[in-house]
Nucleic acid binder design. Structure first.
Lengths: 325, 325
DNA sequence: CTAGGTGCAAATAATTTGCAGAGGC
DNA sequence: GCCTCTGCAAATTATTTGCACCTAG
């Protein structure tokens, strides 16, 4: 399935005038998937039109890179290849040395190491290249297994949503457990309310996910695109339940505040790390929603303190119940 | 400071016969540091000897790559560069787009993502390339700050030892704390013994570290080479102390066994991940020592059970006191 | 009309290769 | 003497450029 095509008339102002040849080359390029070399593209074009020069293809490829339709990638073959970049987030590559195909993925954890290393060495990073060379499943087993990824912006959005949903679920479970454990009536009420809010929020995310699935029927079955350790662990720590027993309403709100703040910062940080794309938006919107919820809880807490006076602070442990990583 | 040079007479058997030109080229290459292009090398050689052909330099570079003295690296400049590989672990690069120098680092976390992604996509990875493009500190600030790394095998060993030491320290502290908390006399004795063993082991590691420092006086001040999140976090979880109070000797031994097993697996896994080098050896030796300690504890535990019969198992939480990641 | 697009052929740039002669064992 | 190394020049490969011509706005 060809990815959704950019409107060329919109891209035109980015440089130069309308031209048959250029349009023809761009169209052929966009219709292909995978990573084409200049030569591959020349061959493809020549099937339609015998009278196209190599130089024009090179010049058009350069134009596409400038216009943001294509990205030049170097797989160490001694020549460059070009991949779509219109609504395709920057990503990393697995490269099969046998069939020379390449497979794309994103990793928050790698981005995070890149930040860490750059900071440690006083380096200002502008772009990073990660390439894993080896043998793909198909080349190793002979079976035809590796379904193509489709449009990566959609995949990124899907994986971002999955992570947000997993986080919400883990939050809901934490609050539900907390409500069951807390002996103080008002403390329990706070946790119950928090759990209900998570349920609301969760259903919003789930309907958004369903909506996404309608845009590509095979979307759910495609392989993971965004790898994200922080999410897999779940954000709530185990083994702190017994400390929740004696929590009152003020303390429960403080716990909620810590949780929402952690979640907000977490998604904000990860969202900011990526290029402009739908997936990034999902992260940032989710971060915003957590922020709103956080602000609400803070207001509630302040009101409570105004009414009741400040109670003794909860014990140390529950405060770190949610890892902020 | 030039890295320690390989004995060329030993490398000779790897292919071909002794030759003046080749030896001359190899010597000039090994005397340089940084990443040379074929052309850089030709220029350097021509200072000594005017009558050397470009083709010979290319052929010798290829020979060096085959012999394991050099590694061909592609920084996307449209030509290859060559770096030392004799006793230099494979690593990743930060590449300054302004001064075109490059800086090396290793990251366990990236290796771990590479494994995870490859497994998820059924890919067999054989090699990976990570390049961070940007601007180095010196180019940005004008100050001359970035000390060169020196011999990376030494750095790798240094960082591996630092991690092992940090782990040992955290183990010692955990057992000391546990001994202080445990009410049962025999349980306390077990933790005290464990803490003492960690002290012994720690002093061994520290003297090895001191020995390493003697090989390069500036070693300690060089920047971090191996980035390793697993270590930074510390391997022992906080907040489980209160559960240690009621632990008896059998239970204490079981906790020790879990800890040592975690540590063993952790270092084995990370050691195996790297290329042959001194740093890798340190990881693997450390893993072995943990394994020996583990076996000892297991024997002790079995003996205890034989004498006392099986006591009730300790509560769930202490068992996961040490994260195995 | 005129700026920019296009084709062709020649130029570049890094690297490789064929071949004849030189040199180590 | 044999086998490999070496130099030189020519070949190769991917990409770029100069220049005359063409075409859309």
């Amino acid at each position: 399935m060809p990815p959704s095509l950019p409107d060329l008339t919109r891209l035109k102002p980015l440089g130069g005038k309308r031209s048959n040849k250029r349009e023809q080359i761009v169209n052929v390029f966009l219709r292909q998937e995978g990573h084409l070399s200049a030569d591959d593209l020349v061959d493809l074009i020549r099937r339609d039109d015998h009278r196209i020069s190599r130089a024009t293809v090179y010049r058009t490829l350069q134009w596409m890179v400038d216009a943001g339709i294509a990205r030049k990638v170097d797989f160490g073959e001694g020549r460059f290849r070009f991949e779509h970049s219109y609504r395709q987030p920057r990503h990393f590559h697995l490269i099969c040395k046998t069939c020379h195909r390449s497979f794309e993925f994103l990793s928050s954890d790698i981005e995070s190491v890149v930040e860490e290393v750059s900071a440690a060495r006083g380096f200002t990073a502008s772009q990073s290249v990660v390439q894993i060379y080896g043998t793909c499943e198909e080349c190793r087993t002979g079976r035809n297994s590796t379904a193509d990824l489709g449009h990566t912006d959609l995949l990124f959005a899907r994986d971002a949503l999955r992570i947000a949903i997993a986080t919400e679920r883990s939050g809901r479970e934490f609050y539900t457990r907390a409500a069951r454990l807390t002996r103080d009536v008002r403390g329990r009420k706070v946790f119950e309310d928090l759990a209900n809010e998570e349920v609301d929020h969760l259903s919003k995310l789930e309907s958004r996910y369903a909506e996404l699935l309608q845009r590509d029927p095979k979307l759910e079955s495609r392989p993971t695109f965004l790898f994200f350790k922080g999410a897999a662990n779940g954000l709530f720590a185990e083994g702190t339940e017994r400390l929740l027993k004696g929590v009152n309403d003020q303390q429960a709100l403080l716990i909620g505040i810590r949780c929402e703040r952690g979640s907000h910062q977490f998604f904000k940080k990860y969202g900011e790390r990526f290029e402009d794309s739908e997936g990034k938006q999902i992260f940032l919107e989710f971060a915003d929603e957590e922020r709103e919820h956080l602000d609400l809880l803070v207001r509630e807490y302040k009101a409570l303190v105004r009414r009741q006076g400040r109670a003794r602070r909860p014990k140390r442990a529950p405060v770190s119940a949610r890892a902020t990583r």
